[in-house]
């Protein structure tokens, strides 16, 4: 299978699902137009320069439109895009990768739950920023620990002591 095909398929699926869900509403025509543009863009990226991150971003407007039909559908489509993104980068080859991916797809659901329960986005926005900051600190700490352990010569070459 061509590199990035899974992501392109996910973009097409998200576009079609959002258009179908918006049938009979004023957003149906914009959804059809957006779906066509996004699918064309994804094919262009796929055949010119395959890039999973770009395809993942291309899928986002379709998810955005589907929120009007149902926040649950938006969370499902986001999960689909996330799973496709992770699958195309080879994370599913290990058991820990599969477990982490399953945990990760719960994230859009939780977010949808938090966001849809509020009339305004200020409180969820502050929550997202706080969690993102903590996650960034944890990641930087782990990276620093990894670099310092390599720098300190913890991994001695055998036979050269």
């Amino acid at each position: 299978m061509r590199w990035g095909t899974v992501m392109a398929a996910a973009v097409a699926a998200a576009s079609a699902a959002s258009a179908l869900a918006l049938a009979g509403t004023p957003l149906f025509l914009p959804a059809i137009a957006a779906g066509a543009v996004l699918t064309g863009l994804s094919l262009l990226v796929l055949f010119s320069r395959p890039d999973e991150a770009a395809l993942f971003l291309i899928a986002q407007p379709a998810v955005f439109l589907s929120w009007s039909a149902s926040p649950l559908l938006a969370a499902a489509l986001e999960s689909l895009a996330t799973l496709a993104f992770l699958a195309s980068t080879g994370v599913f080859r290990t058991r820990s990768g599969i477990v982490s991916s399953i945990l990760l797809v719960l994230l859009p659901g939780c977010l949808a739950l938090v966001v849809s329960g509020h009339r305004h986005v200020l409180v969820p926005l502050v929550l997202v920023l706080a969690v993102s900051g903590i996650a960034a600190l944890v990641i930087l700490g782990l990276a620093s620990h990894l670099i310092s352990s390599a720098l300190g010569g913890l991994h001695e070459a055998p036979g050269h002591q």
């Binding site: 986002q60 955005f64 929120w67 305004h120």
Partner: peptide, 27 residues
Amino acid sequence: WSFDSAPALLLAGSILGILAARALLFL
């Protein structure tokens, strides 16, 4: 934040989440 848009917040949170997850897996 500007347009008080819930779907935009969902997308931003999802992107940040996937970035964090990818960073942890990479480390």
